[in-house]
């Protein structure tokens, strides 16, 4: 094995135990006969691999969970309806489209009736019913429509999270 190749493997697959047994044997043999590579292997182990291996796990301060919990509660208190719709959507995704439509319509009827009781919230109810209309549209459109329906970005395609 040539030095250049040996050094490359020493710094990658060999150091990380990702090398096959045959290659590993070749490299060990090379190190025995090559002072430069021997030195590189030692340096890697001593200054990089070992100190990092000994690093300790850190735990976040206890108040962090309380902060997170509070943020979640605030968000849910602000958007109880939206939350309910997401839950509903989740339930429906597990069903066949035709059946899902029927279920959605039924649940919607119940919800709409309940919502109309406090008439002072007419405005909110209207915008809510609009959303419901969009929601039904989504059911007609299938999975793709769902992301559009989610104006607040509730779609959780992992790529979306990272944008």
């Amino acid at each position: 094995m040539k030095c250049e190749r040996a050094k490359e493997l020493l710094m990658t697959d060999y150091a990380d135990g990702e090398l096959g047994k045959t290659y590993e044997k070749d490299i060990r043999q090379h190190i025995r006969n090559c002072k430069g590579c021997e030195e590189l292997e030692k340096a890697l182990k001593k200054t990089i691999i070992e100190p990092l291996k000994d690093s300790s796990r850190h735990t976040p301060p206890a108040y962090l969970w309380n902060n997170i919990k509070e943020s979640i509660n605030v968000k849910q208190a602000k958007n109880p309806i939206e939350d309910m719709i997401v839950n509903l959507g989740m339930l429906l995704r597990k069903r066949k489209p035709a059946f899902a439509f029927a279920t959605a319509a039924a649940i919607l009827l119940v919800v709409a009736t309940l919502i109309q009781i406090p008439m002072s919230r007419e405005k909110a109810v209207n915008s809510y019913l609009n959303e419901q209309g969009e929601f039904l549209n989504y059911l007609g459109n299938g999975e793709n429509g769902y992301a559009e329906f989610n104006s607040e970005g509730l779609g959780t395609g992992i790529e979306e999270i990272f944008l």
């Binding site: 976040p60 902060n67 997170i68 979640i72 989740m90 959780t156 395609g157 992992i158």
Partner: peptide
Amino acid sequence: TQDVFLKIHKSLKRF
């Protein structure tokens, strides 16, 4: 960390 867990919470339903 806080940001990560809010993201996890928000997207958990679609995991």
